[in-house]
């Protein structure tokens, strides 16, 4: 089990207050369950938003028109998840921020998506490998969320689980096609898995926020889902004639607002028009 204290973070004393308050590891003292849940939902929302943004970069560049269509379909669902999660997060944290305030006016350090979602697209195999890892996790997590006590959140979990099940099917099928297609595609798929695998552990990290939410039955922890996830992805990867990369190092930091250098341009692009027109209505 990993806590965010393992993160390669700079010393806590030097962490900007804004980042700690918005996304960091702990809610404001005395914030209670709502504050915890806000932190957690913004993390999940950021995962969906950032991955959706990465998938948008494929549209008009995919290997076939069918894939342009499939990837835009998936991106659309992810942006939908982000909207629900960020809206609820902004409502719960007492800041009154809307989904757009959270998406378009936070700095890079205030985003708390897992690093997996922000990795640059790479070739199609890297995208398939990332989709494989994320969708298997998301199906498990949203299914667990569907059983939580909060009715609104449970309804969202049930709907999102159905949607990501289609995304998972898409990722599974491409993993098979690439793994068992040509030597070239198998080589690229293997490289794709190697590229993204060190970033998968962060999806399952558990810190005090998550532990408190899980203990009160407000929202499930992703940590216990990891063995099932490992079994399922290993099974798909094996069917594709490939092997899950051996555990080496694990990347962490996204949940604490410590991102890759490639994340800055992604956020700059996302926010450019919104920031260019202060006071604009859209």
């Amino acid at each position: 089990m990993t806590t965010t204290s393992d993160a390669p973070a700079e010393p806590a004393t030097r962490r900007p207050a804004a980042a700690a308050a918005a996304g960091g590891t702990a809610p404001a003292p005395g914030g209670g369950t709502d504050a915890d849940l806000a932190v957690h939902l913004v993390r999940l929302g950021d995962d969906a938003l950032v991955l959706g943004q990465r998938l948008c970069q494929w549209i008009t560049r995919a290997p076939t028109v069918e894939e342009d269509l499939a990837l835009s379909n998936i991106a659309l669902d992810l942006i939908g998840h982000a909207r629900t999660l960020l809206t609820r997060g902004g409502r719960l944290d007492g800041s009154g921020r809307t989904e757009d305030d959270l998406a378009f006016t936070r700095s890079e350090r205030e985003f708390t998506n897992a690093l997996l979602t922000e990795l640059p697209g790479g070739d199609f195999a890297v995208t398939v490998a990332r989709q494989l890892a994320y969708t298997h996790y998301a199906v498990l997590y949203y299914e667990a969320l569907a059983g939580c006590a909060d009715a609104e959140l449970a309804a969202f979990g049930a709907r999102a689980a159905k949607e990501v099940a289609f995304h998972r099917l898409h990722a599974d099928r491409w993993t098979l096609r690439l793994g068992r297609g040509t030597p070239e595609s198998a080589r690229r798929m293997r490289r794709g898995l190697e590229r993204v695998w060190p970033y998968t552990g962060e999806l399952f990290d558990e810190d005090d926020v998550v532990r408190r939410l899980a203990a009160s039955g407000t929202a499930p922890s992703p940590a216990p889902l990891r063995p099932v996830w490992e079994r399922r992805v290993a099974e798909v990867v094996a069917r594709a004639g490939l092997a899950v990369p051996a555990p080496s190092w694990q990347a962490r930091g996204g949940r604490a607002g410590l991102h890759t250098e490639e994340f800055g341009p992604l956020i700059a692009e996302l926010q450019s028009v919104h920031r260019q027109f202060p006071g604009g209505t859209w």
Binding site: F104, H274, W282
Partner: peptide, 13 residues
């Protein structure tokens, strides 16, 4: 990737 609101982004996708 630059749509200025998440609603407009969804519509454009």
């Amino acid at each position: 990737t630059r749509a200025p609101s998440l609603h407009r982004k969804s519509v454009l996708i």
